[in-house]
Design a protein around this nucleic acid. Sequence first.
DNA 1: ACCGCCGGGTGCC
DNA 2: ACCGCCGGGTGCC
Length: 863
Amino acid sequence: LSYLWSKGSVWGCLPNFYTGERNYSHNSPSEFYSSLGSEGFSIGDTSGTDEEDTDSAILYGTLRGSIVGLRYYTGVVNNNEMVALQREPNNPYDKNAVKVNNVNGDQVGHIKKELAAALAGIMDNKLAVVEGVVPYGAKNVFTMPVQMSFWGREENKEAVLDQLKMHGFKLAPPLKEYGFGSKWISGKNGPTYSAPVHAAVHLTAEQLKSEFDKLFEDLKEDDKTCEMEGAEAVGTLLLPHQKQALAWMVSRENSNDLPPFWEERNNFYYNILTNFAVKERPKNVLGGILADDMGLVKIFTKFEFFCTNCVCASTFIQSAEKKYSEDNPRTTLIICPLSVLSNWIDQFEQHTSQDFHLNVYIYYGSDRNKDPAILSDQDVVLTTYNILATDYGIRDDSPLHKIKWLRIVLDEGHTIRNPNAQQTKAVLSLEAHRRWVLTGTPIQNSVKDLWSLISFLKLKPFTDREWWHRTIQRPVTMGTPGGLRRLQSLIKSITLRRTKTSKVKGKPILELPERKVLIQHVTLTEEERQVYQSVKKEGKAAINRFFSEGTVLAHYADILGVLLRLRQLCCHPHLCTNTSSSFSAGNNTPEELRQMLVTKMKLVLSSGSDEECAVCLESLTLPVITHCAHVFCKPCIYEVIRSEQPNASCPLCRNELRVEHLVECPLEEELDSSNGKKDDQEWISSSKINALMHALIELRKENPTTKCLVVSQFTTFLSLIENPLKKSGFAFTRLDGSMAQKKRVEAIQCFQSSQAGSPTIMLLSLKAGGVGLNLTAASRVFLMDPAWNPAAEDQCFDRCHRLGQKYNVIITKFIVKDSVEENMLKIQNKKRELAAGAFATKKPSASEIKQTKINEIKALIDL
DNA sequence: ACCGCCGGGTGCC
DNA sequence: ACCGCCGGGTGCC
């Protein structure tokens, strides 16, 4: 039958199939694996094809086949061992070739050609994923049997069965025990049935979520309760749970244990999930995951750890006599989001003493030194995910990828949870002896989120997505018995989890005072209301027009602009100075067009709406704007253009896309929406300022030493608030994103001081500083304007509601009645519900994200 | 004998 | 591979 196949006559209905002209790429098994159902997928495509949706795959059935040509290859397998089936379209003898690899990636043989002819089309068209297990006969010299399972989406099932039938094959119903343990049900297929059953019952999202919550909390931490003193060189006192963490981390870095799921059996090392065996002892991860939601503890612990283990491992302090080399590197690479970079810098500065000094190089900014020799001569190199991805992605000159590091620390490690994001690829291709992940939320949406982290830790065999998926992810999401237990034992062996509610020896490690959130409604004056209503009326009319024209997405930036102006008007009339609307789309000069696009991009970036890149679905790396006014990461959109050439189109609106049309954001400028300050304008108050001042003065009467944070997203608003603070004699300080590092540290120290006369108020911009920012001197927070994302608010509140807070924390949110702010509160609540119930639900596609945003816009402006 | 049968050479895709 | 397949040697009983 195979000749029919290769002539393509049977497949006339499938375009571009086996014409012999197509360029096949050598997909690795994992690439193939992850791309199930993704052929033809394009972002923004609403046809329903879902990227990488391996979760919804069902088992079509199984088929027994044979692996031939064993004697030509070195790869060996055991009975019941899993094998990977991989297409080999460029095989000179048979373009249908399917090769068989063992878990280690060594080739075992090929699928017999008649069967390969049937599989090739199924695999190339991604109609099904075919997985193999060698049931027995592993010692055979020339051939061995292989039990294959076919997985795919429901709608492809018929096509798969048809194609197999055409080649004279028929699937047998699934074997229940497939892929688990060694209990194989006979080698015979028995009678065949026309309708294979689905393999397992799915857990409900709720069940999964509760199982998952338990996953981390149930860990028996017997081995994680030894304490260890910090190195003398670091003269900081450690709390008991910090000492425990330190001891655990040091032991992890010097671990001799077998990695999880490996056992020693008569001089071989067996992986009990895949049944793979090797002679050499598999290395354990030297490192692990610190899933710790206590920002401060985290900062200190990681620093203490760093220094202490440098001493313990004799890799640093006594290093003067030691020769560094590729095998004995010196440098720890720390990668973090930009928002916490300054915390790390602070930490290193604060802990530098005469006795203990680290060479820290901050690999950031356009003048960063790209000489690998310089970098590998540091003790610490600090950089951000964006810098790493930029170096790695666009030009091919990433010095960070030319060095084998002593240790890599990923701060906020969940940043890399998307395996397709540039940042993730850049991180996964770094080399190091020891690896750490710091994250408060190792699992954000589903088990999938863990793969990048596990892969980063180089835990075999999970670095290959096929084995991760077959042994962990699918058993968990399909609710296969034991699946969760597997995941739990994996997590347990490499993770230290401490939360605010964790207990050590029966005692909570942290007892935090209460935290209360109050909402204070504010009514605008008649005058303010008039301005607000007129701007709203105008904006609503424009947005209505966009809806009726169907151009909402094209005017996304304009709409954010309208909402921004309304939010500003709720705070103070002077915030809304940039009233020049960009609705006009006349015949502009290229320079005017460029300026307009830059303005739009800045608007999107500064609107506080947490824009994501629709390609990688992460926050924007090196934002660029297209001619159609959509903003993406530069590496992401370049990739889109490259892969779709010569005629690339915008992932969001399908308009023409060209590299030369992309406009970059002028870098590192302060992205404040309220530019063009008008200092000459006479100061006036506003309803919100009045409400704030009233509250502050009342508070001062009650207790003059109480310290407050006054938080806003608009730094200009903070400036306007300075005036009445001065007039009423308040001592205050200020912290916002535009301040130089030194000034920030000063402001924080000054505010945290308990000395008489120290400032009682800090004007704080919502996103200033990262998780590590410690403002526990404050026990009151006034949030002047609501944020789009409730998590941003919570993170801000946690800056004072954390270890070290002695008083109950009261947070007051000012919300203007009958305004966009009230609607924002509703959306916040929805987001909270969504976040709580979102576990195991599918990640929304780019178009779904935009649709959600459109719905939000409607709700916000009362449409 | 344009067969059958024998036994040696050979062997993935 | 203790197979299948190939192609050369061979040929009544």
